[in-house]
């Protein structure tokens, strides 16, 4: 499934790259498209393998706050 999150705490274009690296860290995440311009990320994941709480925690670990839209 695809879901959009608002991301708080991004301060540069490269923050989106940091957030997208969750793709490699969290099993079940297929693709992340994060945008510094829009301050959001669109994540495609397998809901059987990963839950929203895990995604929010992974984003927090990178130093940002994710809020489901």
């Amino acid at each position: 499934m695809k879901k959009m999150f608002r991301i708080l705490g991004m301060h540069c274009a490269n923050c989106s790259m940091r957030i997208e690296s969750i793709e490699d860290d969290l099993p079940g995440v297929k693709e992340i498209n994060a945008s510094y311009h829009k301050g959001q990320m669109v994540i495609e994941y397998d809901e059987k393998l990963v839950m929203d709480e895990q995604i929010i925690a992974a984003v927090k670990k990178k130093g940002y706050q994710a809020v489901p839209v």
Binding site: C12, A13, S16, S35, Y36, H37, G39
Partner: peptide, 8 residues
Amino acid sequence: FRYFVIEP
């Protein structure tokens, strides 16, 4: 103002 920086 975020649009003042170019996103690769």
